[in-house]
Computed example of a mutant assay.
Amino acid sequence: MMENVLTHRIIAAAAQAFWCQDDFLHEIQITLAALADVEYRREKDRERLKQRFGPDAVKHRLWVERESRYQADREPYLRKLEQLRRRIRSDLFSGL
Rank of each mutant, 00 (worst) to 15 (best):
E27K: 11
R89Q: 06
V38H: 02
E65W: 04
L78D: 08
D56L: 11
I11D: 07
L32S: 03
I30Y: 10
V38S: 03
R89E: 12
R87N: 14
R41P: 02
F24N: 07
F24V: 11
C20R: 14
K44C: 10
R86W: 13
R79C: 11
R69P: 01
H8Y: 09
P76R: 11
L96K: 06
L35W: 04
F53N: 10
K50C: 03
R69K: 15
W63Y: 11
L25W: 03
L25Q: 13
S94Q: 14
L32H: 03
R69Y: 08
R66K: 13
M2I: 05
E43S: 10
A13W: 01
I28G: 03
E47R: 07
A57R: 01
A13I: 09
I28L: 12
L35K: 05
T31M: 06
L62P: 01
L81G: 01
I28S: 04
E47S: 06
E27N: 14
I11C: 09
E27H: 12
G95N: 08
F18P: 01
A72S: 14
P76W: 07
M2R: 04
I88Y: 03
F18N: 03
F53W: 06
L78W: 02
E75K: 12
C20Y: 13
Y77S: 04
E3Q: 10
N4I: 04
R52S: 15
L92P: 02
Q51A: 13
S94A: 12
W63F: 09
D73T: 06
M1H: 09
R48F: 13
A34Q: 05
A36V: 01
D23F: 15
H60P: 00
D22H: 12
I28V: 14
L62Q: 10
A12M: 12
E82H: 09
Q83V: 08
Q29W: 00
F18T: 05
K50G: 01
E3L: 08
V5P: 02
E39I: 11
V58F: 08
R52E: 15
R61V: 02
A17M: 05
R85K: 12
R9F: 13
Q51F: 00
S68T: 13
T31K: 06
L35I: 05
H8G: 04
Y40C: 03
Y70R: 09
W19T: 11
R61P: 00
R89L: 11
E75R: 14
G95P: 01
R89T: 04
L81A: 01
L78M: 11
A57K: 03
W19Y: 13
E39M: 14
M2P: 00
R89H: 10
L92C: 07
A14H: 10
A13N: 15
Q71P: 01
D45A: 10
A17V: 06
R42I: 00
A12I: 10
N4E: 07
Q21N: 15
A14N: 08
G54H: 08
Y70A: 05
E82Y: 05
A36M: 04
